[in-house]
Design a protein around this nucleic acid. Structure first.
Lengths: 142, 142
DNA sequence: TCCGAACAGTTCAAGGTTGAACTACTAATA
DNA sequence: TATTAGTAGTTCAACCTTGAACTGTTCGGA
């Protein structure tokens, strides 16, 4: 691949991320989590409300409702009504929820870490920098 | 983000790809294609059999069956039985299927191209090189 | 040539996802 | 203080996805 078009580069990158995800999925499931649930738990500290999670995860609200319902039923998440806004529920990780989430994170660290080990330390730093620039919502000024 | 862990870098990258995908999805749908169908059509030239597509797209076989059925019904894909192996169907893009696929590809090129425009030409080349190394199925020798 | 293993693709039922419409509540405006 | 618009979260029915089991075909070895 001499000079990939933007779309080809996107596709390559997409297959990289989904490939790692597929690799990791069975082990994460052993922790009692679907991948999507793992992503949800990972956002919970910064986005403690369902509507907030829906935006952060680019996922419809009903899907969040159903995922939270299950995560609550298995004791990974707790919900408490918010006193100053009775429409909202604040979600918090239970200790077992945090434990499952951190175990899943370790599995992902390990799998992607093996890929990153193909690069030198300076290449890894450069990759992180470039992806950081691309990921920002609006173009960063440089 | 000073020194992201592998998992954090994976997550950042995953959100980059899914963010671009969400951005592009409405326009691609106007071409008569779901994103997954676009990915399928994009693989068709290199992977002309359903079982082959299932492996390439990391997707269960029944899902491929249903997607192909729809794509055939709207005239984007044609299937012909393979004379030397009667179990298999060879799939080919129709002209309208190729047209839709190429239109979707142009939309993706455009959207990801806008992100890449944040980088210099040499940075883009370096990114492509690094992602190429990471994406290979087994570690490339260097 | 027969037989069993393996593969391509489909069917079906169970389960997951989601758009539309809804209830309950808050906030802004007059 | 009404009125109206907007937001949080849920429900429901329609649709999509998929594991398990199946049919039909190929292939290798006895």
């Amino acid at each position: 691949m001499g000079k990939p078009s933007p779309g080809e580069l996107w596709t390559l990158n997409f297959e990289l991320t989904t490939g790692v995800m597929a690799e990791v999925e069975p082990e994460v499931r052993e922790q009692g989590l679907e991948m999507k649930e793992f992503f949800l738990l990972g956002k919970l500290d910064d986005h403690p409300y369902p509507a907030d999670l829906a935006r952060a995860l680019i996922t419809p609200k009903p899907t969040i409702t159903f995922m939270v319902k299950r995560l609550e039923s298995v004791g990974f998440v707790q919900r408490q009504t918010e006193a100053d806004d009775l429409r909202r529920f604040r979600l918090t990780l239970t200790p077992s929820g945090r434990k499952a989430m951190e175990a899943a994170r370790a599995i992902l660290d390990d799998a992607f870490g093996r890929r990153l080990a193909r690069l030198s330390a300076s290449e890894r730093a450069e990759l992180a920098r470039l992806l950081g620039l691309l990921a920002e919502k609006q173009a960063p000024r440089r």
